[in-house]
């Protein structure tokens, strides 16, 4: 049965790392990280075979706190590093922990190409709609009309829908949940981890200090309740127009299919090349 968070934290947090963490009070990143740790615990994988890779940003600070092989790369570049690790040493379990800006703006090109390769990496994206570490600038997922320090009159750009973007770029598993639905999130991450191929789980999360505060969204509890209210399972979206879905959070498994995975295919290339 489910292992309590307390046991999970004791097992996976780095006890030689000086806490506290850098996240603001009420931030959702910890909820997503805990869901990831619970999912990892359910895989039965050892800590030594797991590599947790991140870029730069609030979410990307997560690896330092957990006791795996951990790699905190440059802004947007988690997926290229992760690709190199996985391609060079396929038995390793490679997980990317990233945010909406890191993954979909500066790292957007790497994201679609990692999806296209269908390389066996699981990417967990914390989507809190904002650049938190730099103090609240608009991100590629900030909804239209919302305020950010670089869009004080409201965002005019259309947002990315990261899970759908990944699916259309070739990811063979893509799902979305929220920090309200922490158990569902855990189960999607577990599916992603166990999926052979590129998997992406988008976790809608609250940034009360950098996003909610500027947009009158109340305290962290109210922000999480809002996720519950806006969430609509993908099974109930049939027949809905783009406009009807626009302000909702579509949760569920967006894509799940089987396809040949990159390191498996490359093992075939090596075998053929060696025989020539």
């Amino acid at each position: 049965m489910t292992t309590p968070n307390r046991i999970i934290l004791d097992k996976y947090l780095r006890h030689n790392k000086k806490f506290p963490h850098i996240w603001c009070p009420g931030c959702g990143i910890g909820i997503v990280l805990a869901a990831l740790l619970r999912a990892i615990d359910r895989t039965g994988w050892t800590k030594d075979e797991i590599v947790l890779v991140s870029g730069i940003g609030c979410s990307s600070r997560a690896p330092v706190y957990v006791d795996f092989n951990t790699l905190h790369t440059a802004h947007g570049r988690a997926l290229p590093f992760a690709t190199g690790i996985k391609a060079a040493r396929p038995p390793l379990k490679v997980i990317v922990f990233t945010g909406d800006g890191d993954c979909a703006a500066i790292g957007g090109n790497h994201l679609i190409h990692a999806c296209r390769r269908n390389i066996d990496i699981t990417t967990v994206v914390v989507n809190n709609y904002i650049y938190g570490m730099t103090g609240g600038q608009q991100s590629p997922t900030t909804p239209e009309g919302m305020k950010a320090t670089t869009a004080t009159r409201g965002v005019i750009d259309q947002p990315f829908h990261i899970a759908e973007l990944a699916a259309s770029a070739g990811a063979t598993f893509a799902a979305r949940s929220t920090t309200y639905h922490a158990k569902e999130l855990e189960s999607f991450i577990l599916k992603g981890l166990e999926h052979k191929g590129f998997s992406l789980v988008e976790a809608i999360s609250q940034a009360p200090v950098c996003f909610g505060r500027r947009n009158g969204m109340g305290d962290p509890v109210e922000m999480v309740k809002r996720e519950k209210e806006l969430a609509i399972p993908i099974s109930k979206t049939a027949g809905m127009t783009f406009e009807e879905k626009k302000d909702k959070i579509v949760t569920g498994i967006i894509e799940e299919r089987e396809a040949q995975e990159w390191t498996d295919l490359y093992a075939g290339v090596k075998k053929t090349a060696g025989e020539e």
Binding site: R77, G84, I85, A88
Partner: peptide, 14 residues
């Protein structure tokens, strides 16, 4: 950018 990133990752993997 991805090329050098992948090389650094591969090197970290040995």
């Amino acid at each position: 950018i991805a090329s050098i990133g992948a090389c650094l990752g591969a090197s970290l993997a040995g």
